[in-house]
Design a protein around this nucleic acid. Structure first.
Lengths: 338, 338
DNA sequence: ATTAATTATGCAATCGATTGCACAAACAAA
DNA sequence: TTTGTTTGTGCAATCGATTGCATAATTAAT
């Protein structure tokens, strides 16, 4: 049994498909009588619009392409959640793809989105992406493009980021307030801005509190659990004096926590710890890890709102907008002395 | 500057759009000469097929609707990841929606998928869903439907689940092998099969080892962290003797772990702990939590494979297939004595 | 009663790709 | 030379909804 179309409705009422289409879309040139009849017939025939046909004619698919490095990372899946919520409420659907941080995947995903004729794209660029031609194409076609978290100044388009500088500044200041003076920083060499900003926040918090930054206290790696372990073991081996670690990632912070505990250090009394990301596991460590909340769901909602802003703005009047979300320091036992 | 269509290619080569279409689709009735010319022109004009037009005519959108209770839960986002990987490699895209365990959301999402004319649906049903009309509609339309994790015997369609019974059996047996005899079980009243199966696995492991099950050792709640805490506190208050807890969820296990540690119990020596899910945080607790891995990414891949199986099978020959994934006990320090 | 203005609907093209059927050209067989 | 195949393309309809323009029907104005 096939789905009813507007033609079936038209036939039953002895009108044309045009009339039915207009009636269903609330066109004011249709009489109230006809409109009611159409709506009634539509219900009786269990009519549901075919969005594919509609999309072909109107050029609007009601689809948003969403590209993330990895779907199953807490941060990204929460952003997807936020985007989905807003999109859904406005009758848009979200197509997700992942780049796995590989440029060619990223390019292919964007191309696939364009072929699927999405109405626009929301994306976070890969860690190592330096070419942006594929995104330029999106803009050239006049499609809305919103970047989140990992952005680039090379693309003139709306973006949402958190204030990484502020997050790091808050974290470091908090450690100082807890009496720490020798604060280690775990970071990465990655070219994306977010880590530079966190590093800058760390440095400024130190100098603002009259603590001389010491570059030998800054360790660069991949920010994974193992990196945290390695750096921390190196610190201990060198018998360096330090009373706190601010890690640009929760994972490295956990690695450090493990090593510290294994070596009999008390957290936070001997060494206070602060991470970054507010990964779900941070509240389950022992002690629970102080970290920086990036509000990923809200970030997703914001990205979606920016998206619809672009979508509803005349092309000529579009002015890219950058939204900066203020992060929140989540203070837990790993840094709270006394 | 508008996208080129097959008509533009046709015009340039003085052939018709039919020929171009056939050439691009590898129809053997097109001469090699023409095919090459078409391919060349397509490249020069930067032609990309319009999938919307193709979808309208062919009835295939290359879209899969994927419905999960919540996008940002590790288990579900990993399943999405697995589905996306397979789908992507076969040139399909995945639309995601979340039900938030609310029936009306579930119904709306399915309806939205149908309106978007997806080629089929992969879904996990809501915790409280007892009506399946919306899924029946999918089947009535002859669309592939694959259910995963949370399924129902009321729908005749392919599904992927893990062997919850076996997971629980392994977990409980492991505790017994570690010398435990009084094993508490944390579960839920929910109507979905998975918890019943885990309970059954727990019981059978006990009786198979000549341990008399004691229903007063079984606690039912929501399986969240707080529930684990509450149940554990109750146990301690009643001064019940127990030497292990097998929780049907990692969250409740963590709650219990917290309470035990707060009360000076040694884990695993005084009480051994095993959870279920293999949530990412379980490796970061202290001690790390023994748990049951459900292989969610593999489950997603399997679901996708079942989906394409259905898609490529003649309607008449379709025989729903149930795939059962064998879980793995991930033994960590929370249960490993000595 | 005639004209003008308004209102409701129909006609037909369009979006871009696909496909059954027809047909011309080229070639082979008789 | 005639008939029969094979091969490569074209024609035109189709998928279902949308929309500019035309027109019929109704009402208002003169």
């Amino acid at each position: 049994m096939k789905k009813a179309t507007i033609h079936d409705i038209a036939e039953r009422l002895n009108v044309t498909a045009s009339t039915v289409s207009r009636a269903l879309n609330g066109n004011p040139r249709i009489s109230e009588t006809t409109r009611k009849a159409v709506l009634k017939a539509a219900k009786e025939l269990d009519y549901e619009p075919n969005q594919v046909a509609s999309a072909l004619r109107s050029g609007k698919t009601q689809l948003i392409g969403m590209l993330v490095p990895s779907i199953n990372r807490a941060f990204f899946s929460s952003i997807i959640k936020g985007v989905e919520e807003v999109a859904n409420s406005l009758n848009y659907r979200v197509i997700v793809s992942q780049s796995s941080e590989v440029l060619s995947n990223e390019e292919n995903a964007v191309k696939a989105f364009l072929n699927a004729r999405v109405d626009g794209i929301i994306a976070s660029i890969g860690k190592n992406t330096q070419h942006f031609d594929h995104y330029e194409q999106v803009l050239d076609r006049g499609l809305p493009l919103v970047l989140f978290d990992r952005t680039t100044p090379f693309l003139q388009t709306s973006q949402v980021v958190i204030d990484d500088y502020q997050g790091a500044y808050l974290a470091t200041t908090h450690l100082i307030e807890q009496g720490c003076r020798s604060i280690v920083h775990l970071t990465t060499e990655r070219k994306i801005d977010i880590y530079k900003e966190r590093y800058r926040g760390y440095l400024n918090a130190l100098t603002d509190n009259n603590i001389e930054p010491d570059t030998s206290m800054v360790f660069s790696g991949n920010l994974q659990v193992e990196d945290g372990r390695v750096h921390c073991e190196a610190l201990l081996k060198q018998e360096r004096k330090f009373d706190a670690i601010f890690s640009a990632s929760d994972y490295a912070a956990i690695g450090a926590m493990q090593v510290l505990k294994e070596n009999g250090f008390k957290i936070p009394d001997d060494v206070a710890l602060v991470g970054f990301l507010n990964e779900p596991f941070t509240s389950f460590t022992d002690p629970p890890l102080t970290t920086v909340n990036q509000f990923p769901i809200e970030m997703g909602q914001t990205a979606a709102n920016l998206f619809f802003n672009l979508l509803n703005t005349e092309k000529k009047k579009i002015r890219p907008k950058k939204t900066v979300i203020q992060p929140e320091l989540v203070v837990r036992a790993s840094s709270l002395k006394k």
